[in-house]
Simulated assay, not measured.
Amino acid sequence: MVAAIRQAEWHAQFPEDYRWSYNVMLVLAVIPSGGAEVGEVDRVCRRLAGHVGDDERWFREWRAMGDQVRALAEEARELGDRRAAMGHYRRATSYYFAAERFRFPKDDEALDAYRAMVDCFRLSAELDDRYRVEYVDVPYEDTALPGIFVSAARSPGERTPAVLFMSGFDGNKEHNWFLGVEDLLARGVSVLSLDSPGVGEAVRFRGVSLRHDYEVAGSAAADWLQGRDDVDPERIGVLALSLGGYYSSRSASMDPRFKACAAWGAIWDYHRVWSERIEAAFAKQLPVPGEHLVWSTGTGSTQEALQVLEGFRLADVVPRMKGAFLLVHGEDDQQVPVSDAHLLFEACGSPDKTLRIFTAEEGGAQHCQMDNLSIAVPEINRWLADRLGASATSSATSR
């Protein structure tokens, strides 16, 4: 039922604007994991009808819904209803996330909305007695990357496999939660969800820009995971989506400590992708406004940003990969062509590699399967748990 609603909404909402439609789909996609409510999303979309392309209106309406649902959370908390408050804070997280995505420049209003998103997720985690959520800093060069770690260990002294989970060009560690973190935990895999360079709090509040040599961040996370006494240092994997398909592929190719790598969306030549977008005056399908590129790379112009992207090519990198490799892509991905997935898969040097293309007939054909997460997430996480030798837990990890 929910999957059917998601698909219908994807085709019905803002058909003349891919970016707006795709971002509504991002919100609808997390309904099963408690990240949104279809009625609340529908109310926002009704208010936006007739204003397609007005990103200021988008910001105001989604932020207003975030404020409204956060107020519900605070009321429930005052009543002592922890469970209701947790659910409301979770949904507010998604609505603030949606609001801030299109806001450029990242002025005080934008950053305030982002802080509200971070705060709401933290409060939801504090109220969720099923998990022990740790907010952590992963040492990185002269600063640190903010992360959320949840252990799947069921008893003192147990060491579990762990996955470094990164988002992509425009996601964050909080949104990752709704994309399968709880499913990984149930399969006995601990998770470090990380705001990596150019992403989330790392770029907004710590000035850590996007970079091509992503193994610097990946290896820093591997160091941190290997330093924990509840993680098996020989069973570490990496998962990342969208542009994260580059992050994970490069990190696993350059650091053999990653025994399994899942690229949730293929990236082959990101410089070419953006060159084509710029040449088309940003008329091609984009998940966020074109300004995001200059901002996330910490540059002053699109041409300078393109210079940063010169290194975002995998042809000479992925032949080095030795660990297991899973590549997942949608046949109707409108941001990155499916042909790039075939190029990446063929070039990968892993002796254990799997290519999974989701079709329109089965669902999941859109970018990173946001049109049907319910079939994509179990496949990805089952593969990771299998390659990392995880033993599924019968119940969620408790505090």
Rank of each mutant, 00 (worst) to 15 (best):
H175Q: 13
E276F: 02
E74F: 13
L388I: 07
H342Q: 08
V203H: 08
K173N: 08
W264E: 12
V163M: 12
T302F: 14
G244P: 06
L327K: 07
Q303C: 03
E310Q: 13
G311Q: 14
L72F: 13
L192S: 09
W58D: 01
A283K: 15
L355A: 02
P319V: 11
W274P: 05
A116V: 12
W295C: 08
F325D: 12
G188I: 00
E40C: 06
D230W: 02
A222K: 01
L210Q: 09
E379S: 01
Q366I: 02
L48I: 06
G157F: 10
A324P: 05
A360R: 14
G34M: 02
V150F: 01
S296K: 12
F358M: 15
A98K: 05
N23R: 09
A84R: 15
Q366M: 11
Y18T: 02
T397H: 13
A73M: 07
F258I: 07
D108P: 10
W274L: 07
E279N: 10
T93G: 00
G244C: 04
L127V: 00
S151A: 00
L293R: 13
V338G: 02
W268M: 05
E215T: 03
I267S: 08
A365C: 03
H342E: 10
L225Q: 00
L164H: 03
S395R: 08
S21D: 06
Y135C: 01
R250A: 04
D213I: 06
D371T: 13
S190A: 06
V308A: 07
D332N: 15
E134C: 01
S124A: 14
A266S: 11
L239P: 13
G265T: 11
M117R: 03
Y131L: 13
P337V: 12
F312S: 12
S124G: 14
S21N: 05
N381K: 05
